[in-house]
């Protein structure tokens, strides 16, 4: 356990969240994960930031509607490298229940490289925490700090 704690306390990735047309389920769960003491994502050094330029880990929810596609791409581009992309919920991963709709762009991993998937509709905060911890591991691997 202390080994895990050591691993987790090396650096603090900041989180940025993009709602790409979600039904609020995953967003509310993300807010719950990040902002309330019960799940307290700040234990892992993570915190939400308002600007994509400060972010290290980006959490994307929603099925990427046509209208949001360019905005998602632009925002994603503004995040400095190395960045880790997390797809939260089944919508960005596969389209979910909205699969085959005329107003959806492609699944997220056709548009940008995704690193972590957290399926669920919506995933519970504990599952999102698992995803954030995994994203942090990948982020540190990308930084060359530690072999995950």
């Amino acid at each position: 356990m202390s080994n895990l704690l050591n691993k987790l306390s090396v650096r603090s990735p900041w989180l940025f969240r993009i709602n790409a047309g979600s039904c609020n389920g995953c967003d509310v769960e993300l807010a719950t994960t990040a902002l309330i003491p019960r799940f307290d994502v700040e234990r892992f050094g993570c915190r939400y930031c308002g600007s994509p330029r400060h972010a290290d880990v980006v959490l994307i929810t929603g099925p990427v509607t046509l209208k949001m596609r360019d905005k998602v791409l632009k925002l994603w581009d503004e995040i400095p490298n190395p960045k880790v992309t997390v797809a939260v919920g089944i919508c960005p991963i596969s389209g979910g229940v909205f699969r085959d709709s005329y107003s959806l762009a492609e699944p997220l991993d056709h548009l940008i490289p995704v690193d972590v998937n957290v399926p669920g509709c919506p995933p519970r905060p504990q599952a999102i925490l698992e995803g954030v911890v995994l994203a942090k591991k990948i982020w540190m691997r990308k930084l060359g700090i530690e072999e995950g």
Partner: peptide
């Protein structure tokens, strides 16, 4: 508006 339009009635 229209960013969250997922075409649900058509679906």
């Amino acid at each position: 508006s229209g960013h969250v339009h997922r075409g649900m009635e058509a679906l």
